[in-house]
Design a protein around this nucleic acid. Structure first.
Lengths: 207, 207
DNA sequence: GCAAAACACGAACGATCGTGCTATTTTATG
DNA sequence: CATAAAATAGCACGATCGTTCGTGTTTTGC
């Protein structure tokens, strides 16, 4: 149906902007309504509670993430290209203009890690799914004999996540202009290690 | 002088506990006073503002960090042992019982990355100092010919930080029981890469 | 074009926030 | 032990929080 869903989408869009900067807790109904030229109660009516707003925001952002990162990466060729696409799209995602405060999930992760409740539960599910997706891409690269056969895909996913977290930290807190190249270097080293390129490197040294 | 500084220390101790769980913003004067059986105004009088409380809390926690991580690591032998000590003490630190919500700096990092002000400024200084200390330990390992001569110490520090962030994420948000061993594995791989052990590994393969 | 449903607004609520004032109690000092 | 100083309590303030309710205004379906 019509108008309601339209403003609801506008609210979530704006909420994503605000929450990326102030966190899910700092996202307040009053200021959000003000930014959208809505009344507090009018906005509130769209969600029965703030908790529901937070959860629906998570769903909305997760949808955007799938659209902008997961799906395009999945369409890439199996193996290392797909793994690379995941990393590149992910980095681009966390610099997306609609999230001026950086990846919302990163912010929510540390914010909610000690706040039990449905919001946290949903976030954990989403993060597990995403880590699982990365691990799957890594496992495929193993199948394709592009990664070492004894590579642990979950460990690989974990380390990629660490690289992204460090990227976020360097870029958003420290304002380090080298953040991107630091992340790239770390990722390249991880790929090199996953694919056993020691012999390749040795060849390079000899040649 | 006497009593004042005593309660001030008790306040900061408790504030560290609370802030590690709820963040620097979630740290509220009312609840903090209640937990300590103090009046709100009585507690408030110790710090002229909430911002000052946050900054002084940062200083306090930084002091604890130096005492429990930096100093003991510095007393370790130059080179890889010291680098290892940094990592191990750091991991132990973030599991410290006085910070039930995990490392306060990790929580504050994502919380303050878009909140300009003196609190953020101080946090950035502290983080830069710490990254610098890690880089220095890595540089010493290079001097000692335990790490490759062309290793970038700042890049090394950045990646160690990423490992710790991923550790925090896995442990505190995902409640992953393998968090520690994941972090250990990532760190070992990083050390292996920094020290050029390809030939050693090759030897192992041959032998 | 009308009835019905959906949507938005305004005002108000209890709670809690940080922050001032003013006493009152507690501590340190001669 | 008295007294000045420091530490804490009590109270109130304006602001803002999430939430509820009643009423008005669009939008929609027939």
């Amino acid at each position: 149906m019509g108008k309601g869903d339209l403003t609801r989408a506008a609210i979530l869009e704006r909420a994503m902007d605000v929450a990326s900067r102030c966190g899910l807790g700092g996202l307040t109904i009053g200021t959000l309504a003000e930014e959208l030229d809505l009344s507090k109660s009018g906005l509130f009516a769209h969600f029965k509670s703030k908790e529901a707003l937070q959860i629906q925001l998570l769903e909305y952002v997760a949808g955007q993430f799938i659209e902008r990162v997961v799906r395009p990466a999945t369409q890439e060729a199996r193996g290392i290209p797909r793994v690379r696409a995941i990393f590149e799209r992910w980095a681009r995602w966390s610099k997306w203009k609609s999230m001026p405060g950086g990846c919302l999930f990163v912010a929510a992760a540390t914010e909610l890690d000690d706040r039990p409740g449905p919001v946290r539960d949903r976030l954990v599910e989403l993060q597990r799914d995403w880590l699982g997706a990365i691990a799957r891409a890594a496992a495929i690269a193993v199948e394709e004999h592009q990664f070492e056969p004894d590579l642990d895909p979950a460990q690989f996913a974990h380390e990629v996540y660490g690289i992204m977290l460090a990227f976020h930290h360097a870029r958003r807190l420290l304002r380090d202009p080298k953040a991107q190249e630091r992340a790239d270097a770390a990722f390249e080293a991880l790929i090199e290690r996953a694919a056993r390129v020691e012999r390749t490197r040795q060849r390079r040294r000899v040649g």
